[in-house]
């Protein structure tokens, strides 16, 4: 992570830092869900469909991680621009994809 260039202008409320940590918490929550999903998918002898579901959930989590990484990089700017709607939608689609995997595993 590059250090903020204009340290003198830094927001005293540490808003970019708090937002960065919020992204980190979100990826950690995603990691917990991915672990639960993989555990559920590989339960009972790892059938081929379970392996596919586990790979999908891991991929979705890696996607969320990459998204958070890019956003955290953008937050290091002195005056970060607002989150792009596309990034917000992608993050939500990651959550929805995990839920869809969950439905497939439950049924």
């Amino acid at each position: 992570m590059t250090p903020p260039r204009a340290a003198a202008e830094r927001d005293p409320g540490l808003q970019p830092e708090r937002t960065r940590l919020a992204w980190r918490r979100t990826t950690l929550t995603g990691a917990v869900i991915a672990v639960l999903a993989v555990k559920s998918a590989l339960h009972g002898g790892a059938p081929p469909s379970g392996i596919v579901a586990a790979a999908l959930c891991t991929g979705v989590w890696l996607g969320l991680l990459g998204l958070a990484h890019r956003r955290i990089g953008a937050l290091a700017a002195p005056r970060p621009v607002a989150l792009a709607p596309r990034a917000a939608v992608t993050a939500v689609l990651c959550a929805v994809a995990l839920a869809v995997c969950g439905v497939a595993l439950v049924l």
Partner: peptide, 27 residues
């Protein structure tokens, strides 16, 4: 920009709530 960042954090908090509910389903 600080208002936008606050809005983003609220969005992420709701997203974590959603993920927690999904985790509850798995659990």
């Amino acid at each position: 920009y600080r208002f936008s960042l606050a809005n983003e954090r609220t969005f992420l908090a709701w997203l974590r709530t959603a993920l927690a509910l999904i985790g509850g389903g798995f659990a």
